[in-house]
């Protein structure tokens, strides 16, 4: 995924594993950029699938 702050690419799984404050009821829904620390929203499954389908069609 691409960081919304510094524009670098990183793997969200790795970022979430490392950084999470654990205060949210549903677990951490953000991926923290390993380069700058910015919290990027983790795209929910249904939106992710929709995006991928759209990309495929294009």
């Amino acid at each position: 995924m691409k960081c919304g702050f510094c524009g670098r690419h990183f793997s969200p799984a790795e970022a979430v594993e490392k950084e999470s404050c654990g205060r949210c009821l549903r677990g951490c829904q953000k991926a923290y950029c390993p380069y700058c620390g910015y919290g990027n929203p983790l795209i929910p499954g249904f939106l992710d699938r929709w995006l991928k389908n759209k990309e495929k069609k294009e």
Binding site: L25, Q29, P41
Partner: peptide, 27 residues
């Protein structure tokens, strides 16, 4: 390093907004 500036991408904005709203509301 400054990443390049660009016009907002409709899909990105929509997905990010919906993602944040969903997260916030359920929270």
């Amino acid at each position: 390093e400054l990443p390049p500036m660009r016009l907002p991408q409709f899909h990105n904005v929509l997905v990010k907004t919906m993602t944040r709203m969903q997260w916030y509301f359920l929270e």
